[in-house]
Amino acid sequence: MTIQEKYKARVKELLSTGAVKMVIGYKPGSTAERRRPLFMRSPEEADQLVLDTACIANLAGYLVAEGLLSDDKRVGIFLKPDGIRSINILAAEAQLNIDQIVVLGFDIDGQEVNALEGESAGDFSALIESIKDHAPEAPRNPLIEQIEQMNPIQRFDFWQTEFSRCIKCYACRQACPMCYCRRCIVDSNQPQWINTSSHTLGNLEWNIIRAFHLSGRCVGCGNCDRACPVNIPLRLINARMGQEVLGAFDHFAGMSETQEPVLASFKKDDSETFIL
């Protein structure tokens, strides 16, 4: 049985026994490479389920939709390890109750899709632990190295070229599971910290602050990057910040549902070599 069929059967079982009220998965999209979210409430709806190497989107953000989890009923969801890390973060930040989530875990390895062992978030802690342990050696995006090699003037120009295209559509925010704020900082206008019109200064400020808000929270799922209509390589910044919090504070986002947010905690011996 293919993994898709296996999971289809499991979804039907979960839905028909009433173990979950809904399962969030993937269905075909507008092109062969695209997948769309599928919200299954009945076993029949599971027939549309697709699980293949095109299922790269992180669906975790749908869990925090207003009201979905408020009735204490359980919801199933297809997640890759990055998605599992994001539900850990959402749980750690009190946005959802992890016990309500049934994880249908999978991973994409080249041309293969593999099932992951376990159904509750905690079952994957060893897996996430090993991802963390391997993070320092994991191949870095060559562009990050390239940017770091530049001098500040070149770096500034590089990012200006990128940010200048931003149209402030906030698709990145919409796509990000961690951007669940009821009111985003850009929409806070008393005072208006971030210039909202899409001129370059405002674009820079917006992108810096969003990256700051995701430091230590970004799981690298790439949702924002894919959502951006003008192809700003947002994941480079977020990945760079991920390296930073890992190196400086040994913090790897989404380890567990009890992980303390990196910017709401501290250690007395945190590094401070940069302080005069």
Partner: peptide
């Protein structure tokens, strides 16, 4: 620590 790195990375 975090913000400084972020600024530096963006030039």
């Amino acid at each position: 620590m975090v913000f400084r790195t972020l600024l530096d990375f963006t030039g």
